[in-house]
Design a protein around this nucleic acid. Structure first.
Lengths: 135, 135
DNA sequence: TGGAACTGGTTTAATTTGGAACCAATTTCC
DNA sequence: GGAAATTGGTTCCAAATTAAACCAGTTCCA
């Protein structure tokens, strides 16, 4: 077995993730979503404030501002000023937003599963174990 | 075993990779490298032509043009017209380029190892094999 | 109190990115 | 041979990204 270069693993892993996401980009666009926007939608329940989203998703605040603006314009998100702290904008999925979020994550899951399908069942569970351990 | 949505795994995995790479961005900059440029340098031995690099790294050709230009200007890369096919530019690491590439990948490896360290050596090998198969 | 420091979010401006069109060299095929 | 199709690489430009400066609301603390 060749020696393990972690940087090589990082790179392979990264390429895989990019290949998967770009393979669903077109279908996401049909739903009216950019890929980055999907991540925002998928994270809103857990982190309903833009500042939290930026921290959680590791994207800069101005980007969050932009994505939220577009998602709101598309009717996928509502925002209301938090009565506790007037600086904060509490975000909430609309029914349409929840639906499209679920469809989007289903697409991503399907695409990733397709890659996972190249592995045996045993290898799939092994991979899951390894990733869970690292996360 | 808990049921985990593949899209969720994708997302967590992505965040992990981004966190790792951004944690070394500053040190890479000290070496005179952008993160994308490091990937180019690290791949030149295996894929010495820009078109191959673009395909292999999943980045658009114009970006490769730019990175190669900067890496050449920095003295990390040399290019020579291929005598077999005058369209092709054969790329080659300079000694300085090889050194900085090794230092850069060492930094990335170190940062990623912090996470990989949660796996046994055998598991690390396994992970690499699985990722290569999925790519 | 009240002002200094901090936090949430936006705007601005500069940089980075990448699709499309492009040129030159090579290959294909009649 | 030579026109048509391909391939390698670059340039152009429009779109995406983001650091820096900014405003408004909140907290801290003398």
């Amino acid at each position: 077995m060749s020696k393990i270069d972690p940087a090589k693993i990082w790179s392979l892993n990264h390429r895989l993730l990019m290949a998967v996401i770009s393979s669903v980009a077109a279908e996401l666009a049909d739903l009216g979503l950019e890929t980055k926007e999907l991540f925002v939608l998928a994270e809103v329940d857990e982190h309903p404030y833009p500042a939290e989203l930026a921290a959680s998703l590791c994207i800069p605040k101005p980007s969050v501002t932009l994505y939220v603006k577009r998602l709101e314009a598309a009717g996928f998100l509502r925002r209301e000023i938090d009565t506790e702290d007037l600086r904060r904008h509490r975000l909430q999925l609309t029914p349409a937003g929840r639906k499209v979020m679920q469809q989007g994550t289903a697409l991503l899951s399907e695409a990733y599963s397709e890659r996972l399908g190249r592995l045996s069942a045993a290898q799939q569970s092994e991979l899951r174990v390894l990733l869970e351990k690292m996360l």
